[in-house]
């Protein structure tokens, strides 16, 4: 079971990752990126829903190549999801992964540790 229940180990002296200088910046950055992703998508979805259900008949208005306003709004919501998802992954790669690498290096330098993430 050890592969799936990683044994809790006391970290080697001097490697309390919670106190590592990169820990807090990593935590804040990850939280900010998560909140941004959820906020963008949540606000978009809510806005589309509220608009659709307050101006119902307007949703059936044909606009572009026969596509109605409602379809265009839903298409915009889908496009927002796509762009924000790809952007989130890239932002995490650019801003969070280097902090993770720094912290993982710290565990390695202080002796045999558990398997690399």
């Amino acid at each position: 079971m050890s592969l799936f229940e990683p044994a809790r180990q006391d970290p080697p002296p001097g490697t309390d990752l919670h106190g590592h200088p990169a820990h807090e910046p990593l935590r804040r950055t990850a939280r900010r990126l998560r909140r941004r992703l959820l906020a963008v998508n949540g606000v978009t979805a809510l806005a589309v829903f509220l608009l659709a259900h307050t101006a119902k008949q307007s949703m059936a208005t044909p606009l572009l190549s026969g596509c109605t306003l409602g379809m265009l709004l839903l298409g915009g919501q889908a496009a927002t999801m796509l762009v924000s998802a790809v952007g989130y992954d890239r932002a995490c790669a650019a801003r969070c992964d280097r902090h993770v690498d720094a912290m993982v290096s710290a565990t390695r330098q202080h002796g045999p540790g558990p398997a690399r993430p």
């Binding site: 809790r8 919670h18 990593l26």
Partner: peptide, 14 residues
């Protein structure tokens, strides 16, 4: 345990 788990969830390191 929560403090340690938070670090693990951020980095994957244990």
């Amino acid at each position: 345990a929560a403090r340690r788990a938070e670090t693990t969830m951020l980095t994957g390191a244990r």
